[in-house]
Design a protein around this nucleic acid. Structure first.
Lengths: 309, 309
DNA sequence: TCAAAAGTGTTATCCTTACACCCATGT
DNA sequence: ACATGGGTGTAAGGATAACACTTTTGA
């Protein structure tokens, strides 16, 4: 039974998780001083939702949008009990424009929102000093033994003691765990009992959750699809490419294996030029193979999981 | 700038791709004689979209819904130019109820809609006899050499000549390719020039595309998450499990390796009982380990890719 | 000369795939 | 006896991960 009207007025908005990597840090476009993600009303003027989002973002940022992918549709009831809002969220990949003044928003460091996700310099102190103790006591105070065991399992799987077991893709699950445990500010706004407030910026509505969804999807995607290149300048060195991947994955990678695996996949080609002026030996410059971009829909790409050092 | 109202009346509906596997064939719940997927109006009475869908489906089918996952949100403009409809689609996994009369719909064989996706008995004749010739001539009649080359690439990647290169996950891409080439009936309804009409049932609106999205997601998911068990009875033999996976994947699997890989992952445990009465040696019965179900959110599972025979 | 980064070569290990074979039951 | 499905062992191959080492530049 399609076409039935819904009872009260229904509104829909598009929410964008727009990501770039600049200077070794993953960034996300925000508005209102970093408190919300860019969002706009949904209008049916375009062929598809995707086309609509692309046009809207490009008009806002004056910058071409490389890759776009739908993330999730949320029905957020608790902003305004009367008005029903559907939020259709998208992940978009770009490069941060040189003229930072263009557009209305500001690019923020993703790890400002999720400080516990950056393991590039080893396990963050925050995890051992605050998160694990808090989560442990949260787990122990569960009402039933079954719930207690379940909580312990979740904590151990998402914040493992052994650094080698860290799974960087679980960004959303970890945020939701910290939310449930009353460790992020948004939990208090929803009426949950707060245990403590971890460092890390919060956002309005459920935007930090949407950001976590996008970040998680991106971390998963770079492992099997050649989407990193949407974040790279036209020409780049292998080290630059590795640093972008590391910035996203939030951990260091083994240099030699990274290079080998990238090169043997034939996704990139040498431009013939080299870097100059920097310290160290000059590096060859590469570009993404344009013919691969065509078959992008099905082309795979692998990234080495080997850790550095 | 959130909260802005959209111009005309906006409606939203939930669309469900409800899947079960019965008697070696994957099935999907449909209404109106198999022409549409079950769909209902969206109402904000529940905590979340997911909870709403679950309650609605269970009230319709009188059957518990195991696993639910959001698929995609479509903005379908061409049904009724005035009314704007958002379709939020979900994938749900169940078991087909024994009393087939319960509920309003009918369970259809998924391969009735996508006959080219069933490779369990080797490459379907349909592919070599109709699809490949039609797609080839479609590719050759492109306007520019670049477009021609791109089309050839897509055809080769999605319907490879070498059976070993067949990628069962590309259900959606293949449907969209056949759509573009004017080989499925829905293309004609949208005004595209038809080249021929392949065997395979069509659906109203874009429901066959939604079904393809769900089928593709399911084929991808069973490889790394233990969701197959949502489709199994409480107790099952390893052969039954393999046949369910084969029904979904659309191809045969190597028996010995399948068994080994499943058993070594410790996702299942013996019940102690055995089958009786059937031909051949009695088989041990297994059940899904309930403690794994708890950690399902992060638990992985692997399926062997090795082909049979 | 040293630090920093680019590169090359080789080896160990694990997982997947493939192949060969034996066991238990009903007709 | 034989067909059917259950069940075990082991070897080959490829991909990943780990380690050691050389080369080229700027300060």
């Amino acid at each position: 039974m399609p076409h039935l009207p819904t009872t009260p007025a229904l509104h829909a908005e598009l929410v964008a998780v727009l990501t770039a990597v600049t200077g070794g840090t993953p960034r996300v476009l925000t508005t209102q001083g970093g408190e919300v993600l860019p969002a706009g009303p949904f209008q049916m003027v375009h062929r598809s939702l995707q086309a609509g989002l692309r046009a809207w973002v490009e008009s806002q940022t004056h910058h071409a949008l490389g890759y776009v992918e739908q993330l999730y549709t949320f029905a957020d009831r608790d902003r305004d009990e009367a008005a029903h809002v559907l939020s259709i969220s998208y992940l978009g990949l770009t490069r941060e424009p040189a003229d930072a003044a263009a557009g209305t928003g500001a690019w923020q460091d993703c790890y400002a929102y999720f400080p516990w996700e950056d393991w590039r310099a080893g396990r963050p102190e925050l995890v051992a000093q605050q998160i694990l103790p808090q989560l442990s006591s949260w787990a122990e105070e569960a009402d039933t033994p079954a719930e207690r065991s379940l909580r312990r399992q979740r904590v151990a799987a998402q914040f493992p003691l052994d650094e080698a077991l860290w799974n960087e893709e679980l960004v959303l699950q970890r945020y939701e765990l910290l939310f449930e445990a009353g460790l992020v500010a948004e939990a208090g706004h929803r009426g949950l009992p707060m245990r403590a407030t971890l460092p890390g910026r919060s956002m309005l509505h459920d935007h930090r959750r949407i950001l976590a969804t996008g970040f998680a999807r991106l971390r998963a995607k770079i492992k099997y699809r050649p989407v990193v290149f949407e974040l790279m300048p036209p020409e780049f060195t292998l080290l630059q490419l590795q640093q972008v991947v590391e910035a996203l994955a939030g951990r260091g990678l083994h240099k030699q294996n990274f290079r080998r695996l990238i090169e043997q996949q034939a996704l990139i080609e040498e431009t013939g030029a080299q870097t100059a002026g920097s310290t160290g030996r000059p590096a060859k410059l590469f570009r993404f193979r344009s013919d691969v971009r065509l078959e992008r829909a099905t082309a795979g790409s692998k990234l080495p999981l080997a850790r550095s050092a």
